[in-house]
């Protein structure tokens, strides 16, 4: 039975790669309309978990459902995934990239695309191959945030972006988030820069959920900021 309160439901999720348990029995319920922080150090399973939700990685056991359906062609229409790696075609220009990808999604917002291009200071005529790592990260965010998708998955969105621009990018993410229609899961280990975004958090460690819950309740319970709690958990 699907609970309308939760957009993503995960039960007993396991994924093993040679020599390592990337996910080791994850149970989670992601509340609709919130920004979730998926926190953990490198190798804790954050990216694998997001890829399982996006349908890019098949779990060995356990189950992921989005709106009650297993990841499939149908759920891909509702999910916008921005991976950490550079996955865009190098030979395309910025505008060609957006034109190509937008053709496949009915929820693409052209005005929002233009607004984000300006906000991220991206030149639509530039080739992807000529963009710096930071500018490519911005382009990936434009691709992910130009849609009205129900679920937005951002994997290390600040990776490669210089520290002076990070606040601006975080501001861009907040501006585009529509809490009445969207849910966002943002994975990062840059907790101090993204702390103000989270309604709820998940601390992952060695493929397991270490702590999860409302960010505000955790702050009160531990009398610590998320960043301090992160440092304590992973010290």
């Amino acid at each position: 039975m699907t609970d309308q309160k939760y957009i993503v439901e995960i039960a007993g999720l396991r994924k093993r790669y040679p020599g390592v348990d990337a996910l080791d029995g994850i149970d989670l319920k992601i509340t609709r309309g919130e920004i979730w922080g998926l926190l953990g150090p490198n190798g804790s399973g954050k990216s694998t978990l997001l890829k399982c939700i996006a349908g890019l990685v098949k779990p060995d056991s356990g189950q992921v459902t989005i709106n009650g359906s297993k990841p499939s062609r149908k759920t891909k229409s509702a999910v916008a995934f921005v991976p950490e790696i550079d996955h865009l075609y190098n030979w395309m220009t910025v505008q060609q990239t957006l034109n190509f990808i937008s053709a496949f999604y009915d929820d693409w917002q052209k005005e929002r695309e233009q607004e984000l291009l300006e906000f991220m200071k991206l030149d639509p005529r530039k080739k992807v191959s000529t963009l710096s790592k930071g500018m490519r990260a911005r382009l990936k965010l434009v691709v992910g945030l130009s849609r009205n998708s129900e679920l937005v998955l951002l994997d290390e969105p600040l990776s490669g972006i210089d520290p002076s621009s990070r606040d601006r990018i975080v501001e861009g993410i907040v501006r585009q988030f529509r809490s009445e229609k969207q849910t966002m899961i943002l994975s990062t280990h840059a907790v101090d820069e993204t702390e103000r975004l989270y309604d709820s958090v998940i601390f992952l460690s060695e493929g397991r959920v270490h702590i999860s819950g409302s960010a505000e309740e955790l702050r009160i319970k531990h009398s610590k900021s998320m960043n301090e709690l992160f440092k304590e958990v992973y010290a």
Partner: peptide, 14 residues
Amino acid sequence: REKTTYTLLLLPIP
């Protein structure tokens, strides 16, 4: 090789 499979496999197409 160029990791563009992410782009392709994320598209909601058969």
